[in-house]
Design a protein around this nucleic acid. Structure first.
Length: 233
DNA sequence: TATTGATCATAT
DNA sequence: ATATGATCAATA
C-alpha cells in the first residue's frame, strides 16, 4: 500500500487544456508554502538564490514535463506556463522573460516563424503574490488565465519584434538597449555580464556578444491581466 | 520608484 | 556550455 509514497504528490500531465485550466483554477488562494509541503519540496527563505522557484513549483503542481526542454511546458496541449509576480493591486512586479535570441540568425527569421510568436501563441498565466516583504511560503496564488494574443496584441508584438530583430539582424547588437520596444524589449539573459555568444557585427564579421532575450514589458502583461479581471473590453 | 542591466539554480 | 525557470539590484 505504500508503493507510491512520495510519488502520488506529482500529478500526471493533464490530458486536455480544460483539465489543465481546471487544475490551475483550483490552486487559486493557495500559498506557495502549502503547495510545497504537499509536493514535499522545501521553500527557500527568499528568491535571491532560487529565482526559478515559483515557476518550478507550478510546473510540478500542474504536471508539466519536469525536464527543461525547448518545447512548450505542455507539449501535447501546446501550452506555455508562465508564473507572473504581482503586487497587492494585481500589477506585475516584473517583466516576463519570453525567449533567448540567436543573434547570429534572427535576421533571417520572419515574425510568423519566430520563437516569440510560437511561445506566446497559447499561455497559461499564473499570477502569484510577488511583493518582497511577503515571506515566499506565504505568497498566494491568484486566479489563472489561459490566453492567446488578440489580433491587436499580436500586431503590437509583431511591430516591436520586427524593429528589435531588425536592429540585431543588421549587426547592431551592441546598440541594443532595454529602452527599445513599446511592449516587447531586449535585455541580457545570461549567467553574468562576461557571458558571450557568437554573432555578426555590422560588417558581417564574426563577433561575440552578451546573450540577450526578449521580455514582455510589465505594462503589456498588466493590461492583459486587467482585461481578465475587469469584465469589460 | 520604475526600469534597465545583471545574475542565480538546476538540468541536459 | 546552453536552455529552462525567472528575480535581483543598481541606476536614472
Amino acid at each position: 500500500m505504500c508503493l507510491a509514497l512520495g510519488v502520488k504528490v506529482s500529478p500526471p500531465p493533464p490530458a486536455t487544456e480544460a483539465e489543465l485550466v481546471a487544475r490551475a483554477a483550483a490552486l487559486a488562494g493557495r500559498t506557495l508554502g502549502s503547495l510545497a509541503d504537499e509536493l514535499e519540496l522545501s521553500v527557500p527563505s527568499d528568491l535571491r538564490r532560487a529565482k526559478g522557484f515559483p515557476g518550478m513549483l507550478m510546473e510540478r503542481a500542474l504536471g508539466a514535463t519536469a525536464a527543461s526542454r525547448a518545447e512548450p511546458d505542455f507539449p501535447a496541449l501546446g501550452v506555455e506556463l508562465k508564473t507572473i509576480p504581482v503586487d497587492a493591486r494585481g500589477h506585475p512586479c516584473e517583466s516576463t522573460f519570453v525567449a533567448t535570441i540567436d543573434c547570429a540568425t534572427i535576421g533571417e527569421v520572419e515574425w510568423e516563424r519566430s520563437v516569440v510568436r510560437a511561445k506566446l501563441a497559447r499561455v497559461l498565466w499564473m499570477p502569484i503574490e510577488g511583493s518582497r516583504p511577503i515571506p515566499v511560503g506565504d505568497r498566494r496564488i491568484g486566479s489563472a488565465l489561459i490566453w492567446s494574443p488578440s489580433p491587436e496584441e499580436e500586431r503590437l508584438l509583431r511591430f516591436d519584434w520586427e524593429e528589435l530583430a531588425g536592429v540585431i539582424g543588421q549587426g547592431e547588437v551592441e546598440r541594443m538597449t532595454g529602452h527599445l520596444g513599446r511592449n516587447l524589449q531586449v535585455r541580457p539573459k545570461a549567467a553574468n555580464s562576461r557571458s558571450r555568444r557568437r554573432a555578426f557585427d555590422r560588417d558581417g564579421a564574426r563577433c561575440a556578444v552578451l546573450p540577450r532575450g526578449f521580455y514582455l514589458r510589465a505594462s503589456f502583461t498588466s493590461a492583459l491581466l486587467a482585461r481578465h479581471f475587469h469584465l469589460s473590453t
